[in-house]
Simulated scan of single mutants.
Amino acid sequence: MKTFKTLIAILFSGLFMTSTFAQEISISEVAHDVSNETKTVLKTEVEKILSSYVEDYSNDRHAKEKRIVGVEVPQVDGKWTIKITGEKIGEKKWEVSLIEGLPTIPTYVYRIELKTLRAINNGEINALTAQAKAFSSDYAPMDVHEIKDYKPTEDDDSALNAFSFHFWTKGFPEVIPFRPDATRRAHGSGVTIFYYEKGLRTGWYNILPGERVREDAREQAMPFPMMGVVIKGSAKGIVDGAPITVSEGNTVFIPANVHHKWWNESNEPVELILIMFGKGA
């Protein structure tokens, strides 16, 4: 059974961030914050941010689904439970609450770096991108783990991906950024995750000149089909052993379990929207 970490890792990685966001969560800045502000003040800030997401989600149509998850912010020693009962309060709102302390039942827990939480709250990066990694052992500034011997199914993991998008994206309709400074490094280029749910994964690649995508053979074949929609530039690649060039205005279809890799030999960035779908996606 794939764990949530494995599912979120299959497409996207990111030990290193690109320009602006890298500065947002640098270790030196985190240390500076903790040494110059009391944890009490920081914890109050975090609670206000989390409360704003709880309030926003109480108006979200997806809040009709019951869920309990935990949130940890290590820099402030903060631990909370987000409880969604699936019950309505009045005509429009759903019952969603923030409770201090981790859940007492087996479930998922988000572990979020303080700078990352601020960046998500400021619209500088979206939560699914902040969680992205190539392999489950990789670092991510917003990670998910299971507590109390929780053993989720693949359906549970897929549902959490969708929940992560809706809970951590405020407003309606939901809008997330995709631009070079809102990406994380993934398989050799900058990537933003758009949306995940069972049978569908979407994202955006920004491949800079000289970058090579999916050079690692372990990442070159997926167990489900995908389509790459080139919206800017021209990329060269190898699909099932055959050379190919795809340019702006073209879409390339790659069947399940077919090896492929890409690179940018031009002097301009290549932008590509990736759509992964079908059983196992």
Rank of each mutant, 00 (worst) to 15 (best):
F12P: 00
M17D: 15
T18S: 01
S26E: 15
E29H: 11
H32L: 08
S35Y: 06
E45L: 08
E47S: 12
K48C: 09
S51M: 11
Y53T: 05
E55T: 11
Y57N: 04
D60I: 01
K64C: 10
E65I: 07
V71G: 07
V76Y: 03
D77Y: 02
D77P: 00
G78Y: 01
W80A: 05
I89G: 12
E91S: 15
E91F: 08
W94M: 07
V96Q: 04
S97N: 13
I99V: 15
G101H: 07
P103I: 08
Y110N: 05
L114M: 09
T116G: 02
L117E: 06
I125D: 02
I125E: 01
L128V: 07
T129L: 01
A130G: 07
Q131S: 10
S137R: 13
Y139A: 12
Y139L: 10
Y139S: 11
P141S: 15
H145V: 13
H145A: 12
E146V: 13
P152D: 13
F165T: 02
W168K: 07
P173R: 06
V175S: 11
P180T: 12
D181L: 01
T183H: 00
R185H: 15
T192G: 01
I193R: 06
Y196W: 13
L200Q: 10
G203C: 04
N206I: 09
R214F: 14
A217L: 05
S234A: 15
D240T: 02
N250P: 00
T251P: 01
F253Q: 10
K261C: 08
S266V: 02
E271Q: 12
I273G: 09
F277S: 08
